[in-house]
Amino acid sequence: MAQRDLTPTSYMILGLLTVKDWSAYEIAEQVGRGVAELWPSADRQRYNAPKILLERGLVTASTVTKGTQRSRTVYSITDEGRTALSDWLATQATPPALQFEGMIRVIFANQGTIADLRTNLTTMREQATRSRSLFVSHAQRISAPEAGTLPQQNHLMALANRFMIGHFNHIAEWADWALEETADWPDTVQPATTHRKRTVSTLAHSIDDGSS
């Protein structure tokens, strides 16, 4: 059975170790490459997770020293670790959850100014554009002749990469639409009544999209 009290970050690290042995620094570096946009808590857990895996016997650790370089801890996956990863992959994933502060600010924007709302929308668009660029650069790297860090997983990386680029495309496009939609709003309060027909039309469009 999968060890359910382990986090996806731990299983992510086990997955990395199936490719080769990694130092603690290398693991943290790999987990930090674009993972924060997909699994935010991974960034907080990437330094402690290997130690927990070691305590469980899912990895081993050895101290390696090269020449005059400072010694480093290198982790290797055990047979028990491979079994735990395989068992976890066979379980049902938890539903996706979105942590999106900008959208919370949209929902309660009637307590602030129209300038605040539109600044927030602009920030959301800029953030999405930057994140999209990050995944575009990932796609370019794994498409290169040297095929990136994990060439044996490029076909899987491509699946995830397309989703992430599409996700941030959607946010950027939505922010552009929202900026246009709010362009004639005098404030964040009056449109509740003055733009009622437009609100109903927007909701109808959303219903149509959701049922298609």
Score class of each variant (00 low, 15 high):
residue 160 A to D: 15
residue 141 R to Q: 08
residue 159 L to V: 15
residue 39 W to F: 03
residue 123 T to P: 09
residue 190 Q to H: 04
residue 103 M to A: 13
residue 40 P to F: 08
residue 182 T to R: 07
residue 47 Y to N: 14
residue 48 N to H: 06
residue 123 T to G: 14
residue 183 A to I: 04
residue 161 N to W: 02
residue 124 M to D: 01
residue 63 T to A: 14
residue 55 E to T: 10
residue 7 T to N: 02
residue 20 K to G: 01
residue 34 G to T: 00
residue 128 A to M: 00
residue 145 P to S: 09
residue 137 S to L: 01
residue 151 P to M: 10
residue 179 L to R: 05
residue 185 W to V: 04
residue 77 I to Y: 12
residue 188 T to W: 04
residue 13 I to L: 03
residue 79 D to F: 13
residue 18 T to V: 07
residue 45 Q to T: 05
residue 17 L to M: 09
residue 129 T to G: 02
residue 200 V to R: 08
residue 88 W to K: 02
residue 108 F to Q: 12
residue 53 L to H: 06
residue 154 N to I: 08
residue 144 A to S: 10
residue 76 S to M: 03
residue 80 E to A: 15
residue 34 G to N: 01
residue 39 W to K: 06
residue 174 W to Y: 09
residue 24 A to S: 10
residue 23 S to E: 04
residue 145 P to Y: 13
residue 37 E to V: 01
residue 19 V to N: 12
residue 65 T to I: 13
residue 134 L to C: 04
residue 92 Q to N: 08
residue 74 V to S: 11
residue 79 D to Q: 07
residue 143 S to V: 00
residue 180 E to K: 11
residue 139 A to S: 14
residue 165 I to W: 02
residue 149 T to K: 13
residue 122 T to P: 01
residue 37 E to Q: 04
residue 207 I to W: 10
residue 97 A to W: 05
residue 208 D to R: 15
residue 89 L to F: 06
residue 159 L to C: 10
residue 104 I to R: 14
residue 116 D to I: 00
residue 86 S to D: 11
residue 194 T to S: 12
residue 43 D to E: 15
residue 9 T to M: 12
residue 83 T to Y: 12
residue 92 Q to G: 05
residue 2 A to H: 08
residue 159 L to T: 10
residue 104 I to L: 13
residue 95 P to N: 05
residue 104 I to P: 06
residue 72 R to S: 06
residue 19 V to M: 03
residue 15 G to N: 06
residue 49 A to W: 05
residue 37 E to M: 10
residue 161 N to C: 05
residue 13 I to C: 02
residue 33 R to H: 09
residue 75 Y to D: 04
residue 207 I to P: 11
residue 47 Y to E: 15
residue 31 V to P: 01
residue 185 W to E: 02
residue 180 E to V: 10
residue 99 Q to H: 11
residue 104 I to K: 14
residue 116 D to F: 00
residue 34 G to A: 03
residue 30 Q to M: 14
residue 34 G to E: 00
residue 98 L to Q: 11
residue 206 S to G: 12
residue 195 H to E: 11
residue 124 M to V: 02
residue 104 I to F: 14
residue 132 R to Q: 13
residue 51 K to N: 15
residue 181 E to H: 12
residue 142 I to M: 14
residue 142 I to S: 07
residue 196 R to Q: 03
residue 148 G to R: 07
residue 61 A to C: 12
residue 105 R to N: 14
residue 30 Q to P: 04
